[in-house]
Write a protein that binds this DNA or RNA. Structure first.
Lengths: 229, 229
DNA sequence: CCGTATCCAATAAGATACTG
DNA sequence: CAGTATCTTATTGGATACGG
């Protein structure tokens, strides 16, 4: 049955190719199907389980997620890994090359943020927000800023290290963080960062001045002017 | 009928949304359908006609191209413009915001060039090659290089201006070009640039030293290491 | 020649139920 | 929980025909 699945996958891929030497076309063959880039996005900050992916990709169905993961694995962008006992669960992890797709996610996201039809009030995953932190911070305002900030989205913990004009993000929790932010749902943090909504929407503890400065780093880009329909 | 088409388009778009505030997801709603980004790519160096797009996107069918153009227009990424008499023909042109998608095309293309399954010998459009010129040149080797090079792909003429560490590309022909390169099919030029194939594959006239230096600017990136299947 | 419209067959996506 | 199986619907691509 496995070989049959692979055969049908190969037959499909041959038909749906673009027959174009352009790297962009080949990129679309690799990660251009519906949901594929979003699945990869969710793996950008570390391995995730099937059910976590399903929860963070509202509307994806189990069979499509399963198929996308199989394809991404066949293409060398994702590996499935069995965690050692006692956890003993299977997780999906981006390969090194898969992680190199992050600039695609960022470039596409930054461009689309200018869309007049972008609705920033929709639900969003914790991973997406933290990737947007890396993408959208104002480089002019960050100068000299050095800080460690903990984030919690339900059970998921991340640390942002603001250092030397860049922001690194890791899984986990830092003891020495000057600030801890928790948001449930994660969209509330987006409302605070990009909509300048009141802090009541999130939970936070620690350095309030740092929180102010952090929130001030983010601003949505101006909307693109589009011709009248 | 037009209103019916728009209604069905809207109904479709509602179902196929990602319901995700992440900019990347919204970007995929805008240019994530099959062929959409490639259509936009073909417009990156200036307006094109329907039949030119069809010819440069091997395998796209007329109805799909038509639908993609309608959608891109509805989203404000493309406008259709009627050239003044005596030409009197309709062309499709990227809007300013549409042109701002070029970094997406570039980032995706550069990433995918590392794919072990990328086949650079397939057919390719002139626009794709010249976009790759902008994307893939070696910044370390270009230092101090100043030149104007004409390109011809069948009836289409372009000029590359290498200046100040960057490469600009425009439609048209420059009188004062030091070098003129013609390639038919365009894939032959790709073979020369990236495969270091012999110059016999192309036609050229002018400064041979410049041609050597130009070709030397390009190199495919190393293939990504992927886990064994 | 430039598209658009229509019809058809193949496939992908979505919804739901089900199994180890 | 982690998927698979099955069924329905939507999209795609190919062919062809039609109007400007």
């Amino acid at each position: 049955m496995q070989s049959e699945k692979i055969t049908s996958l190969r037959r499909t891929e041959e038909k749906r190719r673009y027959d174009d030497a352009c790297g962009t076309a080949h990129g679309l063959e690799l990660i251009g199907e519906r949901w594929a880039l979003l699945v990869l996005r969710e793996l950008m900050l570390g391995p995730r389980r099937f059910s976590q992916l399903r929860a963070d990709l509202p509307g994806i169905s189990a069979n499509v997620l399963s198929q996308r993961l199989t394809e991404l694995e066949a293409r060398g962008l994702v590996v499935r890994r069995k965690l050692p006992p006692p956890a003993n669960v299977q997780v999906y992890e981006a390969t090194e090359w898969g992680l190199e797709a992050e600039p695609i996610v960022q470039t596409l996201g930054r461009w689309a943020a200018r869309s007049p039809s972008h609705d920033p009030t929709l639900p969003i995953s914790g991973v997406s927000i933290l990737l947007s932190v890396r993408t959208m911070f104002d480089r002019a305002k960050i100068n000299g800023m050095e800080a460690t900030i903990n984030f919690r989205f339900g059970p998921d913990a991340y640390v942002a290290q603001i250092h030397d004009g860049e922001i690194d993000i890791l899984r986990g929790e830092a003891e020495e963080a000057a600030l801890t932010i928790a948001s449930d749902p994660p969209a509330n943090l987006a409302a605070v960062m990009y909509g300048k909504a009141p802090y009541e929407l999130i939970e936070w503890s620690g350095d309030k001045v740092l929180l102010d400065r952090f929130v001030d780093l983010f601003e949505l880009p101006p909307k693109a002017a589009v011709p009248a329909a």
